[in-house]
Amino acid sequence: MVDSATVDDICARHGDAPDALIEVLHDVQEALGFLPEEALARIAHRLNLSRAEVHGVASFYHDFRLRPGGRVTLRLCRAEACQAMGAEALIEAVSRRLGAAPGTVSAAGVAVEHVYCLGNCALAPAAMVGDRLIGRATPEAIAARLADAGV
């Protein structure tokens, strides 16, 4: 059951403004880990939007999760600059090591995701664990950062 006080607080902090919907969704996801159906309904009510509008936005953007994610998110860049430095092989090696392909969650709770550019293209290939950016990423460096994050 979603604590509607949390959602209400977040909406109130953004003045219940419908144009702040994306900020609200980010904050609610940060607080709850994902965006449960009841939370979306509550946001729609607070921001005076239809549930369809809120669902439409939540499902459009890659950042938003409508189901529980992992304990930590690992983003692996596969844009061109990283491909030029072997990103595809890195992604394969990391996925094998974690036992989780991009788009899935590993047994240890790592949500593995593809991403298209982390803005670290001079130090490719790039990856990100939570908010921590990794340059010249290797399977070992990624494993070390995941260990720092407790998995």
Partner: peptide, 11 residues
């Protein structure tokens, strides 16, 4: 919204 691969000047 600097999304182009190879770009990091905005950042």
């Amino acid at each position: 919204d600097e999304g182009d691969s190879g770009s990091f000047a905005d950042r």
